[in-house]
Amino acid sequence: MPAEREDFPVVRVAALARLRLSPAESALYQEQLGRILSFFGQVAAVDVGAPPAGPAITGASATERPDAVCPSLSSEAALANAPDAAGLPRLVRVPKVLGP
């Protein structure tokens, strides 16, 4: 069912998107996204019928390459942009995941 402006579940959806919003942001997005969805609801309401037969939506078919071992990035290069990997060969540091 299309969501209405006043009941857009912004806090729940932001949590699903792993975004921590301020109260001001939540209020702003609640209003804006409710309005946007009211407009986009025309898609939900229209009966377009089954998609027509034909090629894939993008019109492109995937091309394949040989399943062979190829040169790739070194671990050092791949992790060179990691925010917290200093002194950790082939590892990154993250906050503790499991409890005490």
Binding site: M1, P2, A3, F8, P9, V10, V13, A14, L16, A17, L19, Y29, L33, I36, L37, F40, V43, A44, V46, V48, G49, A50, P51, P52, G54, I57
Partner: peptide, 25 residues
Amino acid sequence: ILGTFVLSAGYYDAYYLKAQQARAH
């Protein structure tokens, strides 16, 4: 937030799937 919403349970069919069908048309 909008994209997460249209893919979420209860709204996927009404928005994302419908949009994909409309895209083909």
